[in-house]
C-alpha cells in the first residue's frame, strides 16, 4: 500500500538550528532518500515557508469566482512542511522508514494514500 509520511513543524525552527543540528536533520533525509531510491519510485516534496502561500477559499456559491486570500490556509502552530510518498509493505514498514527522519523539530504523520495519480499512481 502507498503511504504518505507527512512532516509538520514550526516554520523557521529548522533555519534557527545551529549548523550541526541542521546537518543531523538533513543526514536523516539523505538516508531516507537513499533507502527509498533503492527500492523503487518515491516522491519527496519540501514546501516553501507558509509566508509564500496563497489560499483559494471555498466557493460561496456555484459559478462564483473563488476568493483568493494572501497567506497560508491557517495560522496554525505547526505547519505542513513537506512529505514523502512511497509504497510500503505495511504500516510497520512505513513507520520504520519514518523513524529515519524523526527529529526534535518535526512531527511525522504516517497516513495511507487512498488514491494517487500522475507520475506515481495507485492504479
Amino acid at each position: 500500500m502507498m503511504y504518505a509520511i507527512a512532516i509538520y513543524g514550526e516554520a523557521g525552527v529548522f533555519e534557527s538550528l545551529p549548523k550541526d543540528k541542521q546537518d543531523e536533520v538533513m543526514s536523516g533525509h539523505g538516508d531516507l532518500q537513499d533507502a527509498l531510491g533503492k527500492r523503487g519510485d518515491y516522491l519527496s516534496v519540501k514546501l516553501m515557508p507558509p509566508s509564500a502561500a496563497v489560499t483559494v477559499e471555498p466557493m460561496q456559491a456555484s459559478g462564483q469566482k473563488p476568493l483568493i486570500v494572501d497567506g497560508p490556509f491557517a495560522e496554525t502552530k505547526e505547519s505542513f512542511l513537506g512529505f514523502y510518498a512511497a509504497d510500503f509493505k505495511d504500516l510497520d514498514e512505513a513507520l520504520d522508514y519514518a523513524r529515519v527522519i524523526s527529529s526534535p523539530v518535526a512531527r511525522l504523520e504516517v497516513r495511507p494514500i487512498a488514491w494517487a495519480g500522475g507520475v506515481m499512481s495507485t492504479d
Binding site: E10, A11, G12, V13, F14, S16, L17, K21, S103, P104
Partner: peptide, 12 residues
C-alpha cells in the same frame, strides 16, 4: 536537547 529548544524559543 537545549540546542534544539533554543531554536523553538527564538522562533517564538
Amino acid at each position: 536537547m537545549s540546542e534544539w529548544l533554543e531554536a523553538t524559543f527564538s522562533t517564538h
